[in-house]
Amino acid sequence: MAGGRDERQPGAGPWYGIKWIVGGLGLLVVGFPLLAGGFGDVEAGRRKAEVCAPCHGADGNSTTPEVPSLAGQPPLYTYYQLLLFQQQQRVSAQMAPVVASLSRQDMQDLAAYYAVQTPAVPPPPRDPAKAEVGRRLVKAHYCDSCHAPGLVGQKHIPRLAGQHYAYLVTQLRAYKTQQRTDLDGTMTIVAQPLSNEEIEALAEYLASLPAGAGLPRPHTAR
């Protein structure tokens, strides 16, 4: 495609060059206060997160396989999920009573707090062959187009790297069976053709993936 570029196109040159990439990364760093700094109050979030700690861990690294880790999640993801729980668009008997009385500021503070927590180092895959199948599935389904290179998440899209195996399997099955709200339909389309074995392979791979892989995370670059 680049070979067919028309020289008469003004402005096409820099796009393909390093300038653009540097600019893009710069924007990521500069633009981030929207999502962490200006988005919510980390310190307020720390206090408000005390009620979440028994299940999600004090630093957002859950030790219960069915409960997701929130450390290092993009703040917009955590915020939107809390909104969805409150609006009962995402249904969870555990979450419903906890989020009922949260204000939007509370949710943003919590999201900002978890976003700057460091994700725990994940265990190596229990079944490396299965994880390898999962790695290929990630490639085949272009998961990194939305979940970002390294599957570290971006904007409203969650970090998958280092997430708990059991939680990932549950969520992928929920998308497959349309039990989990899907804002734009993308995940339902991806998950529907997956077999149970493929779901397990994906989870095996993602759960073992270092949380800091891929692009520098916005909040660590800050």
Partner: peptide, 18 residues
């Protein structure tokens, strides 16, 4: 998207759920 921009951070802005 050209392959050299595969790691571009540009993506559509999400619609808030509420």
């Amino acid at each position: 998207r050209p392959p050299e921009l595969a790691t571009s951070p540009l993506a559509p802005h999400p619609q808030p759920p509420a």
